[in-house]
Each structure stands twice: as C-alpha cells, then as structure tokens.
C-alpha cells in the first residue's frame, strides 16, 4: 500500500447466490481511499453501495478480490459503522449506547464514560445522557448513532445513508454537525448516500456507481474549500456545475435500472 492510502480495494466482486439465481451485486471494484479523506459514494438504489460498505465493515465476505485497510494503531478498531435506520440499542441509555464500542474493547468504565461524555457534548446531547432511546426524536437518535461510531475511535468511519430516514430540516442540521465533528477528527470516512447534495456538501471526492451490477462509473473531485457551509456552498457556481455533472452520470443509471 502507498503511504497516503487508508483503504485499497482490488478487483472486488460480490455475487449473491441463491438456489435459483445468481445476482452480481458488485463487479470489479478498484478503489483507493486516501488517508483522512471523506469519500462519498452515490449510486442508484440496488447498485450494491451498501454491500460494499458491509464488506468493508467485515459484515459480509467478498466473492473475489482483496481489501486492504491500513491499521496505524493496533489498539483501535479498524472500522465503525453508522447504520441507516434505527440502530441505537433501545435497552441502553444514550450514554451506554455511545460507550458500546469502547465497552466491547474493554476500555475501563471510568475512561469510556469520559470519552463518551465528550462526544455527547459534541453532539449536543449531554443533557440526554441518561435517557432511553424511546424518549428521543429520530434526529436525536441518529446523533447518538453518530456519536457511538466516533467514540469508538476507529481507523475508518463507515456511514450507510445515516440521515436517509430523517426529515429534511433535521438532515440539514445533522449534515452540518457531522461535518464540524469530522473536520475536527480528520478520520478517513466512507459515506454512502443517494443524495447528490449530501455527497457534494460532505465529500472530498464522489464515487458514482453504475446500476446493477455495481461498478465504478466515475470519480469526481470536490474542489470546495473547507470548512464548508451548506447555504453558502449551494449558491456557488462550482456546486451547480458539480451537481449537474453527478446528476447526468446518475440519470443514465437510474433510467437503465428502470428497464
């Protein structure tokens, strides 16, 4: 692996086999994710982008190909995932949820409480530490979800449409908050989304995937300065231009997928 590389994916193929059929979800994916980069992956539904993330997270095995993830610190977990939907454990208080990754790694209780509390504060949840998830709104639960992933301090942060189930206003607020925390952490992040806005707003680069089977169609650089502000960014010509580019690439795929 090269020095500035955090993840390298080589000739990755994933085939889902059932008794009657074979579905090629991902085909010949070659991708290199830079150290400290925010990589956004967009694609039509069913293009296998979530599958790619699940393989990176070790939840699924690839059929062919190799994945290398650079471990700079062997005491840290390789990956942590922010899942789509309601992935916060309802039987744990907010603070216990955020501590979960640390607890699994047997970080001493006192230490993990300190770390979790600092991330709760970052997410504006410090007053809700001892609430149970059912007492929280959807947006707050997703904040817990994000805090849990950050608190476990992984080498790579993986996010699978984390804000997909939120209403637009909450999504805007959470995107801005995620960006603020991410910019402070410098973590290599792979972010799956179907929203072009979100991909441009958050990403350093955008990977556009093809409809089934999922291949990499294009990789675009997002040359927008950080720290970013959604309102300001949307009014710039670069944003409009990039949006158009990504949409044209995606449109073909969406239409193809409909056939």
């Amino acid at each position: 692996m090269e020095k500035k590389e955090a993840i390298r994916i080589e000739n990755l193929t994933k085939v889902f086999k059932s008794r009657s059929s074979e579905v090629v979800a991902l085909k010949n994916i070659n991708l290199s994710v830079r150290d400290g980069e925010f990589l956004a992956i967009v694609g039509p539904s069913g293009c296998g982008k979530s599958t790619l993330l699940r393989i990176l997270a070790g939840l699924e095995k690839q059929t062919e190909g190799n994945i290398y993830i650079k471990a700079k610190d062997s005491t840290k977990p390789l990956t942590a995932v922010v899942f789509q939907g309601d992935a916060v454990f309802p039987w744990m208080k907010v603070i216990e949820n955020v501590e979960y990754g640390l607890r699994i790694r047997r970080v001493p209780p006192h230490e993990r409480r300190r770390i979790a509390t600092s991330y709760l504060r970052l997410m504006g949840l410090e007053n809700f530490a001892h609430y149970y998830p059912h007492q929280l709104s959807g947006g707050m639960k997703q904040r817990v979800n994000v805090a849990r992933a950050f608190a476990s301090d992984p080498e790579i942060l993986l996010m699978d449409e984390p804000f997909g189930a939120l209403d637009e206003q909450n999504r805007l607020i959470l995107q801005q908050e995620l960006l603020r925390i991410w910019e402070g952490s410098g973590k290599t992040t792979v972010f799956i989304t179907h929203s072009i806005d979100e991909a441009i707003f958050l990403g350093d680069r955008i990977v556009v995937m093809t409809a089934q089977p999922g291949r990499i169609k294009a990789i675009l650089d997002v040359d927008l300065a950080r720290p970013r502000d959604m309102l300001f960014m949307k009014s710039t010509p670069q944003f409009a231009e990039l949006y158009k580019k990504v949409w044209e690439l995606l449109r073909e795929e969406v239409l193809k997928a409909r056939k």
């Binding site: 939840l59 977990p77 990956t79 942590a80 995932v81 899942f83 454990f89 699994i104």
Partner: peptide, 16 residues
C-alpha cells in the same frame, strides 16, 4: 438483525 450487525461491526465476541 440490525442490532446483530451493530454488535458484530464493533467486534463483539459471542459472549458479549
């Protein structure tokens, strides 16, 4: 199954 994925993704052992 989502909760199982969460546990697995954080590297939980069987007992955990």
């Amino acid at each position: 199954p989502l909760y199982m994925d969460v546990a697995k993704s954080f590297g939980a052992s069987r007992l955990q």
